[in-house]
Design a protein around this nucleic acid. Sequence first.
DNA 1: CTCTCTGCAAAGCATTTGCACATTG
DNA 2: CAATGTGCAAATGCTTTGCAGAGAG
Lengths: 145, 145
Amino acid sequence: MLQAGTVDHGLSQSRYRLTKQRAAVLQALSDGGHLSAEAILERVRLHMPGVSLGTIYRTLDILREIGLVQIFTFGGIAARYEKTLDKHHHVLCSVCRSLVNVRADSVADIARDVAEREGYTDIDFSLTIVGRCSACAAQPAIALR
Amino acid sequence: MLQAGTVDHGLSQSRYRLTKQRAAVLQALSDGGHLSAEAILERVRLHMPGVSLGTIYRTLDILREIGLVQIFTFGGIAARYEKTLDKHHHVLCSVCRSLVNVRADSVADIARDVAEREGYTDIDFSLTIVGRCSACAAQPAIALR
DNA sequence: CTCTCTGCAAAGCATTTGCACATTG
DNA sequence: CAATGTGCAAATGCTTTGCAGAGAG
């Protein structure tokens, strides 16, 4: 069953079933945001109360395995999940913890060079920039952590 | 009191006291490794049994505030602490979770450009490369996470 | 003597997991 | 119906914190 409005994007072609919970998690991420598991739970529960956080985590892990979503971790805050997009990096505001995607294609060359020099294979890489966003720029200084 | 062999490197010039626990944490990090709080505790306890993990975390937080150590977090593993060195980045082995420091000076320019374009100020940045280290290259594949 | 620091143990968060029941194909 | 998925709640791993006593200036 795959009705109008249902989100699939490849789940049903994997060895996993397309359940309504999984479709709802994909739906929650479909607008391109970077959401924590808790935030995804909130969105999913709007249309489907009773879903548990455990299911959200299990679903996200499956979706990551299939390649439909990516997980990003930053010190001090819960992991953020995004639907898989073109390779990009992140800027995290040190004050409000908001997150923005940025492109930086030249990083790929650097990462590959470094990895090769050190003898690493099968590499992935990510650049995280932490700084004060323009909206927070007027605020008094708060220490990074 | 600051005897021969004691590690200080600036703590006593801060508003914090140089206690033997704090000196021991600095000592544990003096060989340039990237240690978890637990690993630091082990090293410290060799010469000073009875030190608690809470003290290690509190000490590391102070040392970070003063600028003597840096904290780095990676998804799925406990945070690693290093004594402050020249700007560098990390390569994490996806199999054995070993961590290596690498230089990549050109990343700084990219990060500054990106941050400026997006309107961020007071930036810091870090490139994390995840890959299979040469020692693990012979092993069967294990999924990244 | 006062302020800072420490050990201990409990609490806090994010995430994972065991189990019995529900759902899917 | 057999396999997979889910809710619930407990467990886990890492880190933080309140408190009462110890140590430093």
